[in-house]
């Protein structure tokens, strides 16, 4: 009987030691895991804050570029047309009726051009179509607007099943495509350009290509001409990636990929 009691005592002591060790182990693991979890949450909050700051900076940058665009359009086109109109009207000589009529006709033409330019400028700045309809419709309108200018012809194609993303993301994508098309109009001297939106499972692939004069992508952009870098920053902001292929005299091709999961 005493022997059994002795055996039970030994067993209980060892069992208590083992149970205490096990409980201590579990508590230690939970403690260190919680500590790691707190650090992780802090880092996550910091990353989110940085991301929000980046979004804000990009929004400011987009706004700044838009103002520059408005200023340039007003100065180079509308201002010029209106100045010419003013000059025409100012130099009207009613004694020479035929010349005067011609000048009035010219002035009316110049005013019409100014109105069209103002209209185009307004449309190009308006993101209401994206908000009301979709990115695809806004791009179709942009294509029609550019094609009407007769500077370049844009071929536009959509493959796959379209996925509707949030407005902010669609506006950013629209602006990237718009900037890329503007670059082609301004620098590529191409007669046509292709815009392809391919909706893959999980991501959107956008391809903008032309057969214009091309450029050397390895060259550093000039000050104030950081368009490509800005586009890349915006693509990265949406969690995507961008590729540029170009060679002097052989056109250019810009590809960017936007994953849906991060939107």
């Amino acid at each position: 009987m005493q022997k059994a009691s002795y055996q039970l005592t030994i067993f209980l002591i060892v069992a208590i030691v083992l149970i205490t060790t096990m409980v201590a182990f579990i508590i230690t693991v939970l403690y260190f895991y919680r500590k790691k979890q707190i650090d992780f949450e802090k880092n996550l909050a910091k990353t989110r804050l940085d991301h929000e700051k980046e979004i804000l900076a990009t929004q400011v940058e987009i706004q700044e570029q838009t103002f520059q665009h408005i200023s340039k359009e007003i100065h180079d086109n509308i201002n010029l047309s209106l100045t010419l109109t003013k000059l025409n009207l100012h130099t009207l000589d009613w004694t020479q009726q035929e010349k005067a009529e011609q000048k009035i006709k010219n002035s009316i033409d110049l005013l019409s051009t100014s109105i069209t330019q103002l209209n185009d400028l307004s449309k190009s700045l308006d993101t209401d179509t994206i908000t009301r309809h979709s990115l695809l419709m806004a791009l179709e309108e942009e294509r029609q607007r550019i094609n009407k200018t007769d500077c370049i012809y844009i071929n536009y194609e959509v493959l796959g099943t379209p996925v509707y993303m949030n407005n902010q993301a669609e506006i950013v994508i629209f602006r990237i495509i718009q900037e890329s098309l503007n670059n082609i109009i301004k620098h590529a001297r191409a007669k046509t350009a292709d815009l392809l939106l391919n909706y893959h499972p999980g991501y959107l692939e956008v391809t903008i290509s032309d057969e214009g004069k091309g450029f050397d992508p390895s060259q550093q952009p000039k000050v104030g001409h950081a368009g490509l870098r800005n586009m890349e920053n915006r693509v990265k902001l949406l969690g995507g990636s961008m590729q540029i292929q170009s060679e002097t005299g052989k056109g250019s091709r810009l590809n960017f990929f936007i994953p849906f999961e991060k939107l």
């Binding site: 693991v29 939970l30 260190f32 895991y33 919680r34 790691k36 979890q37 992780f40």
Partner: peptide
């Protein structure tokens, strides 16, 4: 136990 400390601690261990 090594892997839970290597992965991102998103889920509460408890």
């Amino acid at each position: 136990f090594i892997s839970i400390f290597k992965s991102s601690p998103e889920i509460d261990l408890k």
